[in-house]
C-alpha cells in the first residue's frame, strides 16, 4: 500500500501545483488559505515518506523491555 511518492490524493504531482495563489478576497482569507495549503503540502510529504507496508511494519515492531 505504498504511496510510492508519486500519486497524490488530488491527482496532481508537485510540479504541477500552482506556484502562486490566485488573488481572492481579503488578507485574512489569504492567510487562512496559506495555512491550509501548508498543511496540505505537509500531509503530501508525510504520505511520501511514511514507511511502505506500514501495517506489516508496525505489527513487527516489538522491542525488548529496557529500563
Amino acid at each position: 500500500m505504498s504511496d510510492g511518492g508519486q500519486e497524490r490524493k488530488d491527482g496532481r504531482t508537485r510540479d504541477e501545483e500552482p506556484e502562486e495563489q490566485v488573488e481572492t478576497g481579503t488578507q485574512a482569507d489569504d492567510s487562512t488559505q496559506e495555512v491550509l495549503d501548508d498543511v496540505d503540502e505537509l500531509l503530501d510529504e508525510i504520505d511520501d515518506v511514511l514507511e511502505e507496508n506500514a501495517e506489516e511494519f508496525v505489527r513487527g515492531y516489538v522491542q525488548k523491555g529496557g529500563q
Partner: peptide, 12 residues
C-alpha cells in the same frame, strides 16, 4: 520509549 505493545525503555 515504548513499542506500544507492553515494552518500555528509558530516558533517564
Amino acid at each position: 520509549n515504548t513499542d506500544g505493545k507492553g515494552a518500555a525503555y528509558g530516558t533517564h
